[in-house]
């Protein structure tokens, strides 16, 4: 009996925690299928009869959704790739190789987060301006890697620490080079960690707003959050179309997460599991 009550309470706790996170999204998802007229009533009133896709149709007319989507995907993919390469190399160095100054390097990496992004905005704009990278997606890739890679190194910590030393020993016996050891043994062994790291960078890039709104000018190169950002603060804020835009912006990363999310969570938790 007491056991049953406790199980009931625990279930309630789980549902409660999940609900805190998920319910607001369900609310706005519901709103995105409603005409704006209903959304600006003092008492929330959803109507099943008026459920429809009109907000999405309007959004599709007003915004170059698929252009934004493609840009976001390009930026996120390249950011992830570069960040992953840099982070794996650095993690291997600071977590598997023993040399003077590696602790300092490690700290230096994390201390990069000391500098406010806003501080970098103006000088980076100038530098990119000179390199002809303003209004170019490459500028976003560069910035995203800067802000993602140091934390990625730390995320890989557990995975590199967990690799038994005997493996490298065996490889060394075969006379394998360090690069080969890294590529053929370490990388496969740390695959869950790499997956988690990649997903982390991907999400960070997908959500980045400040630099994307500053560096990108042309409509055809805007990322999804910036493209959607243009909908806020207009003369007519139409909550229906905004809700649809919010859902459309969130959807790709949520769908992606539905497929790879468990690797992210498993990766995070498995790394320190040793």
């Amino acid at each position: 009996m007491a056991r049953g009550v406790r199980r009931g309470l625990f279930a309630l706790l789980v549902v409660g925690i999940l609900a805190i996170v998920v319910v607001p999204f369900l609310w706005i998802l519901l709103a995105s299928f409603q005409p704006n007229r209903l959304l600006i009533q003092p008492s929330p009133r959803f109507s099943l009869a008026e459920m429809g896709l009109s907000n999405y149709e309007n959004l599709q007319q007003a915004a170059q959704y698929f252009t934004y989507l493609r840009n976001s995907a390009v930026v996120a993919l390249f950011s992830t790739l570069i960040s992953l390469i840099l982070a794996v190399l650095a993690a291997y160095s600071v977590y598997r190789l023993d040399y003077r100054g590696r602790q300092t390097l490690l700290r230096l990496l994390l201390i990069t987060y000391v500098f406010p992004g806003v501080l970098l905005l103006i000088p980076l704009y100038q530098i990119f301006g000179r390199l002809n990278l303003i209004d170019n997606l490459l500028s976003l890739v560069i910035v995203n890697v800067t802000f993602a890679a140091p934390f990625c190194v730390w995320l890989l910590r557990g995975f590199f620490g967990a690799i038994p030393e005997g493996i490298e020993e065996a490889a060394a016996l075969d006379g394998a080079g360090r690069m080969r050891i890294l590529l053929t043994m370490i990388v496969p062994l740390t695959a869950p960690g790499l997956a988690a790291t990649a997903i982390y960078t991907f999400i960070l890039s997908w959500t980045e707003y400040m630099f994307a709104s500053a560096f990108i000018i042309d409509e055809t190169r805007k990322t999804l959050p910036v493209g959607l950002g243009a909908f806020i603060a207009q003369y007519y804020v139409d909550w229906g179309i905004l809700a649809a835009a919010a859902i459309a912006t969130a959807a790709p990363v949520v769908i992606l997460f539905a497929f790879v999310g468990r690797y992210f969570v498993r990766g995070l938790t498995a790394g320190s599991g040793k």
């Binding site: 789980v14 925690i17 999940l18 996170v21 998920v22 607001p24 999204f25 609310w27 706005i28 709103a31 959304l39 999400i203 997908w206 959500t207 707003y209 999804l224 959050p225 959607l228 950002g229 806020i232 909550w239 905004l242 809700a243 835009a245 919010a246 912006t249 969130a250 990363v253 949520v254 997460f257 999310g261 468990r262 992210f264 969570v265 938790t269």
Partner: peptide, 24 residues
């Protein structure tokens, strides 16, 4: 399932969070 989807609020772009809460 719970471990995966609890992260929902973190994976979504800030602009979405802003619109959502401003409305609610």
């Amino acid at each position: 399932f719970a471990r995966t989807w609890i992260i929902l609020s973190w994976i979504v772009p800030t602009i979405v969070i802003a619109i959502m809460w401003r409305w609610m």
